[in-house]
Design a protein around this nucleic acid. Structure first.
Lengths: 214, 214
DNA sequence: TGTACATCAGTGAACGCGCGTTCACTGATGTAC
DNA sequence: TGTACATCAGTGAACGCGCGTTCACTGATGTAC
C-alpha cells in the first residue's frame, strides 16, 4: 500500500502540496493566520523545505493568488457556457451569458472563500507580482468580453465597455464579500446564488435602460 | 507652553488616543500589522498601559469597529441630507436621498479605508462583540429607512424593503472594496464618487423597473 | 551494466525578533473627616 | 485648610511563544562515460 510506505525523501510534488496546504490553513485560520512554518508542518516537511520552491512567504501567497484568478476565470467561463443559447435571440443569449458569468463569480467566491481572501485581501505587495497581476487582468478581460458580446447584439448600449464591466464587477464583488463575511441574511449557497442572479438582473436592466429611455 | 510640559503621568484621554493611534497604525501597516505594543508606542505609553482600557487586543478592535459603523452611519445621513429636496416631487427626492446615502457610504470607505478595513476585514470575532454588532445593525437600518421612504412615495416597488437594501448595500460595498484596493482605474476621490453615483443610479433604475414593466 | 559525480530536495540547529499577557510595583489623584 | 488613605492609571521586568530566514549539512536522484 502506497499510503503506508514511509514518505519518500523526495516528495515529488511538494510545491503543489504546499499551495494546497496553504489554502487549507487560510480556510481555518484566515489570511492573517497564515505562516510558512505551519504550512510546512501541514505538508509534513521541515519548516524550511518551502524555500526550495518559493523565494519567500510573499511569493507563495502571490502564486496562490495567481492560481485563484485562474480558477475564477474558469468558473466564470463555465457558468456562462452553461447558458442555453437561443439561436433566434442572440441578444438575450448574450445577456444571459453575461449575467451567468456574474453568478459564476459569486459561486467561486463563496465556495472558495479562502482563495478569494488571498486574491483580494492579502498584502498589496501581491499586486507587484507579475503572475498574479496578469491572471487578474485576464479574469477582468473575460468579463469585458461578455459585455462586448452584449453590446454587439444590441443588448447593452454601444461605446466603451469598461464602465459597464466595472459596474458589474463591483456588483458581484460586493455580493461575494458580504456573503463571505456572513452579513447577508441568506442561506448559502442557494440563497446567495439566487440573490446574485437578482443583483445582476437588476444592474443589467439599469445599465440597459439607456437603450429604451429615449 | 503646554506642549513642552513633560507629559502628565495620567494621560487624561488615553483610551481615545489609543483608538486614534490604532487607526493610524492600521492605515500604514494594514489590519494584519496591527499590534498592541506598537499602538502603545505610538501613544507614548508603556506597552501594557492599554490593558487599563481594553480587556485585550480583540476588544480594542471591536471598539474601533463600533466607532467606524457609527461614523459610517453619520456619513450616509449627512450625504442624504445634502440632497436638495423638491417639495413638488417627493418621489424623486426620496430616491435622490437613497442614492446619495450610497455615495456617502463609498466616500466614507475611501476616505477612511483603515476604519473600513477594521469593520469588514478584522477577525470575525468582532461580530461577537455587542457594541460593534449593534452599530453595524444601526447603519443597515439607516439604509433600509431610505428604501422605505422611496417605497412610500412610489419610487420603488412596495413590499419587503430588505432585498432592495441588500442589493444597494452590495453595490456600494463592492465599489468601495474595489476602489480601496486600487483596482478601479479611476481617479480618487472624484472619479470614484462619480462612479458610485453611476452605480447607484443604474441599480435603482434596475430595481425600479418592475414599476413600469407591466 | 557499473560507477563516479554533479545536482537536486530535503533536514535540523540556530539567529534575532516582536508579540500578547501577567505580575508586582509606584506615582498621581481625589475624597472623607 | 490639612491630612490619611483608597483608588486609579500608569511602569518595567519577565514569561513563553512562534515567527521568517539563514546556515551548513545529507540523503536521494540522474546522467556521462
Amino acid at each position: 500500500m502506497d499510503t503506508l510506505k514511509p514518505r519518500a525523501y523526495h516528495h515529488g510534488n511538494l510545491k503543489q502540496a504546499l499551495l494546497d496546504a496553504s489554502l487549507e490553513l487560510i480556510r481555518t485560520s484566515g489570511p492573517g493566520g497564515f505562516t510558512l512554518r505551519e504550512v510546512a508542518r501541514m505538508a509534513g516537511v521541515s519548516h524550511n523545505a518551502p524555500y526550495r520552491h518559493f523565494h519567500d512567504k510573499e511569493e507563495l501567497l502571490a502564486e496562490l493568488a495567481a492560481e485563484g484568478f485562474r480558477r475564477l476565470t474558469a468558473a466564470m467561463v463555465t457558468a456562462a457556457d452553461s447558458v442555453t443559447v437561443k439561436p433566434d435571440d442572440p441578444a438575450t443569449s448574450a445577456m444571459n451569458r453575461f449575467r451567468s458569468s456574474g453568478r459564476g463569480y459569486v459561486e467561486f467566491a463563496i465556495t472558495h472563500p479562502q482563495h478569494f481572501a488571498v486574491m483580494f485581501e492579502a498584502s498589496p505587495k501581491c499586486l507587484g507580482y507579475p503572475q498574479s497581476h496578469q491572471e487578474g487582468e485576464r479574469a477582468f478581460s473575460t468579463l469585458v468580453g461578455y459585455v462586448e458580446a452584449c453590446q454587439g447584439h444590441g443588448a447593452l448600449p454601444p461605446g466603451d465597455p469598461l464602465p459597464f464591466a466595472l459596474l458589474a464587477w463591483s456588483m458581484v464583488h460586493g455580493v461575494a464579500k458580504l456573503a463571505i463575511s456572513g452579513r447577508l441574511p441568506l442561506q448559502a449557497p442557494e440563497g446567495v446564488l439566487d440573490f446574485a442572479d437578482a443583483a445582476t438582473a437588476a444592474l443589467t436592466k439599469g445599465i440597459a435602460s439607456a437603450l429604451t429611455e429615449r
